[in-house]
Nucleic acid binder design. Structure first.
Lengths: 342, 342
DNA sequence: GTGAAAGCGCTAACAT
DNA sequence: ATGTTAGCGCTTTCAC
């Protein structure tokens, strides 16, 4: 059933029916009611494509995910971000267009999405310093929001980020306070902004106490369980092994834990890990949750915030770009667990 | 730049330009070349929406994900499935429309996607027995593919599934062969088809040896680390604890491992777990990979297969519906790790 | 308050 | 081999 048939059946013009359905004021309440009921009874759904062509708005947001395995998709937590954002889109009548492309096609995909009129806005994940995608999108005037920040402290585009520096600084200071002087860092890929911030926080904390970071026990890699496992192994096999480890991702801590178990060692005795523990329930939003669940829901919330910000930007292009800096407390949950040394 | 402007600039009609660009035979090679080059130089991209309206095809596939936390999205592995499917879509010029909706809106969302002409086909995840979505889509004639099977052995729609029965049967028999007589099952939500198959395999294996499944140590829940942890705890706290555990998901095994570690127990001595081990690399497609990686890539492959099947179905609606049953060996990797008891 | 007509950017019959 | 014309299903002036 399309508009034409619907209006014919009602004995009205397409215009009137369209107006009635879309809440325009110049329709009498009587006809509006009649039209609405008839449409509902016949399960009429306007064709999105036609609507989009006519209005120029697509009511869709694009997310681009590289397949390389070098970024988010390998991080299980990423699904929660998408889930949070997706829910906001749905609630607002927007669609989520997910493009999974090869790394080297990424920029081209953003170009295409914009130029082919497929989306009203896009989300940029894991920005690098001076990310070309940002410059490009700003240039062609496509609304966008960034999950993370690209170098600057307070960019003037729309972003949501966690306080990466604060979180790792907190974690490192915590271990130093406990008397550790040899600490390993298992970081994410350091071309990406957040990992740079984390590395900086780690080094600053050490240097503030006159210690020197040792590159031998600093690792940068994908945020997978296996990387956690592999790098923890490298740490412990080092002739001068660390007494504590900071894993920059809750996923990595799983790998670290596993290695420790495999070796027959015990956390807190043989080696400390800033980590999470399900037996320590974590208070968040007034609800006690196991920490992994808390992490998942906080990431979900970040996705939700970003989506809201982006939609706001789209709806009022002249308004200031909204952004959110999520607290260190959150990322401690998110990446390394609360500052508990087990 | 749109078709109109492009053709005006070239001094040709829109038709000719359109034909040249879309590879229709009745255009002279000379004009085709000229048009193509000009279009490329001016970075022309046809407007997708307009194209879709004109052709009736949307070149998009819909995936619907419930937010409830009761299904896939909570399963980190799910991201890999989407990634695999998404890549196939991209390669074939299709878009992936991801709808994240509340559980109770799920069916309505499928209706909408179809009726509003938003997609050419949809994917159904985690089907239940006699899933109403399948009946509905068959009814209105929207091409679809199912990730899993809904009850039947060989449905006549397009599906990709793993041999759930075979895998758990294998795992259970393996433990029985080792002499275990009291085995726990940590299963997925049993309204979903795959979990039913797995439960059945587990029970059959026990009964084939004259043993009776004990509901006290059989759990069904979300496939999360936390559920694995919680249920393993319940197992070990049982007055008559099992000597072995089968976890129906690689994610759950992480939780089980953690509990065992927290309790100061040791796998293989105090309790056996059919599980995976990174130190045991897993040979797949001729490549040695850590098992978690292997699992991720096999799920990715499943997504890819499903997408290919769906596109095939869309392109030739009269052809027989392609399907794939992935071997138990695969799911053993996928859900419980190879049959290693550590 | 309602309707006729134009148009969004493209494709596809039907000419020529 | 190229052009003319008529849609695809909707919104949006502009008239009445």
């Amino acid at each position: 059933m399309n508009l034409k048939e619907l209006s014919a059946a009602l004995g009205l013009s397409q215009t009137t029916v369209s107006r009635a359905l879309n809440g325009y004021p110049e329709v009498s309440e009587a006809t509006r009611k009649r039209v609405r009921e008839f449409a509902k009874a016949h399960n009429y759904r306007p064709n999105l494509r036609a609507k989009q062509l006519a209005t120029g708005r697509t009511m869709a947001i694009g997310h681009v995910i590289p397949t390389s395995g070098k970024h988010e998709i390998v991080n299980p937590i990423f699904a929660d971000f998408i889930s949070g954002a997706g829910e906001v889109y749905s609630e607002n009548g927007y669609d989520l267009l997910l493009s999974v492309v090869r790394d080297d096609e990424q920029e081209q995909t953003y170009r295409d999405l914009a130029q082919r009129g497929a989306v009203d806005g896009v989300v940029i994940h894991a920005p690098e310093q001076n990310d070309p995608r940002i410059a490009y999108l700003e240039d062609i005037g496509v609304p966008f929001a960034v999950h993370g920040r690209a170098g600057q402290q307070s960019p003037d585009y729309c972003w949501v980020d966690v306080d990466n520096y604060g979180a790792i600084r907190l974690a490192t200071d915590h271990l130093l306070d406990l008397g550790h002087t040899r600490i390993a860092l298992l970081n994410g890929i350091e071309t990406i902004d957040f990992a740079q911030q984390r590395r900086r926080a780690f080094c600053d904390a050490l240097e503030a106490r006159g210690l020197h970071p040792d590159p031998d026990i600093m690792f940068a890699g994908e945020m997978t369980e296996y990387e956690g496992y592999r790098n923890a192994r490298a740490c412990l096999d080092h002739p001068n092994p660390p007494t504590a480890i900071i894993a920059s991702s809750i996923i990595m801590t799983i790998g670290v834990r596993r290695l420790v178990q495999t070796r027959g060692l015990s956390l807190g005795t043989d080696v400390s890990l800033v980590t999470y523990d399900d037996d320590l329930s974590y208070l968040r939003n007034g609800i006690e949750q196991p920490i992994y669940t808390a992490v998942k829901s906080s990431v979900r919330e970040a996705g939700s915030l970003l989506a809201q910000n982006l939609l706001k930007t789209i709806q009022d292009q002249s308004a200031p770009r909204p952004n959110h800096l999520l607290s260190a407390e959150l990322i401690i949950g998110q990446t390394t667990g609360p500052c508990v040394t087990s």
